Amino acid sequence: MPALREKAEILRKLHAGPRILVLTNAWDAASARVIQAAGFPAVATSSAGIAYVLGYPDGQRISRAEMLDMVRRIAASVDVPVSADVEAGYGTTADAAAETARGVVAAGAAGMNLEDVDDRGELLPVDRQVERLRAVRAAADALGVPLVVNARTDTFGVPSLAPSDAPDEAVRRANAYLAAGADCAFVPFVRDRDAIARLARDVAGPLNVLGLPGAPPVAELEKLGVRRVTVGSGVARAAYGLARRIALELRDAGTYGALGEGALSYAEMQALMS
């Protein structure tokens, strides 16, 4: 497993600069190859994108085994480190999180996301998530892989938490998770510049935010102190949006204009997959 250890160390160093780490999220082997060919130093996976490929909605409806099988295919298809989005670890216990971490390592991924919500989308108690993160770190360490753990907190995404309370709770949770062994804190669904700046200032480690329409551009996020930007299922959903435009054009006009909107040629795809 020396190669995977090396990839994990590379991924960890990318969070330390000198520039912000920008990752585009893949959902299958082909999208991962496209992203690597575009020059990215690592690839993140999209759990929602993978679920859609296999016919599931997002939100841990897919099984751990199916998710990890696609992570394995993605990791095997690229040379750069892969960070696997494995939702909330497919179970709310420390044992479930540890089993997922072992599966991530076996799949060849150098990092993983772990969410702090249950199957209903509600926030887990902080001490429960801390226990789960410690179990993830211990499981990876036992395998000799310094897995890069990106601890996600959904304080800005759960309906049960008032928006005014979300920043304080995000900082509290992020710092607890970093102290438990996480390498990076992921706070999605925040677009406000002041809130992002506050998170970057008060979170005691690298901050990952989600690149969304309406969020500050990458250069500004870097100035605010953000260390990692990912785009989640955004690329996959954009691709499906194009597929819908193509289908509607074929149905209604019988023409093919949308087929040429940024499409890679057959020869390019063949070369990428060779």
Rank of each mutant, 00 (worst) to 15 (best):
A44D: 15
R201H: 10
I62F: 12
D154P: 07
A179K: 09
A197I: 00
F186E: 07
A204M: 09
G260S: 10
Y52D: 15
D165R: 11
L242F: 01
Q129I: 03
R73C: 06
A151R: 04
L210Q: 09
S164Q: 09
A26S: 12
L143R: 11
G111F: 03
A180N: 09
G157F: 04
E66Y: 00
G262V: 04
L161E: 15
I196W: 06
A109N: 04
D154K: 03
A236L: 13
A101R: 12
D252E: 15
A170T: 01
L114T: 02
A239F: 14
P188L: 10
A215I: 12
A26P: 09
L4A: 13
A42C: 12
P213Y: 07
I62G: 12
T100E: 12
G181T: 02
A200Q: 06
V158R: 14
Y256G: 07
G144R: 02
A38D: 10
Q60A: 15
A65R: 10
V117F: 00
A3L: 09
G214M: 14
R152T: 09
S77W: 03
I50K: 13
S164F: 01
N175P: 02
R72W: 07
P159S: 09
D165S: 14
I74S: 07
R251N: 08
Y266S: 13
A76F: 01
A138G: 07
V78L: 13
A142Q: 10
L143I: 06
E131P: 06
A65L: 05
I35D: 03
E268R: 08
T100M: 10
D194N: 00
V117C: 05
A258R: 03
A84G: 08
N150L: 08
G241H: 01
A38Q: 13
G262S: 03
C184R: 02
L68G: 11
R251S: 08
A200E: 07
V235G: 13
I74M: 12
G232Q: 10
A138Y: 04
P188G: 13
I20W: 03
R237T: 08
R5A: 11
I50L: 13
G121N: 08
L242N: 13
L14I: 00
V80G: 09
W27C: 03
V53N: 12
L143H: 03
R193V: 01
R102A: 11
E99F: 00
S46H: 09
D85M: 02
L221G: 04
Q270E: 05
R251P: 01
L68N: 08
P125L: 11
V78I: 05
T92E: 14
L221W: 05
V53H: 05
S63Y: 05
I62T: 04
A139V: 00
R193Y: 00
D165L: 11
V43Q: 05
A106M: 08
V71I: 15
G103M: 10
A98G: 08
V209Y: 06
A110S: 12
L143M: 15
A135Y: 10
M269Q: 05
G49S: 13
A37L: 05
A88C: 04
F156E: 15
E9K: 05
R72F: 04
V82H: 10
A96H: 06
R227Y: 02
R172N: 10
P188D: 15
G260K: 06
R134F: 03
R227N: 13
A107F: 02
D79Q: 13
A204Y: 00
A48N: 14
S164A: 11
P213G: 14
A8Q: 03
I50Q: 14
G234F: 04
E220R: 07
A174I: 00
A135C: 11
R227P: 05
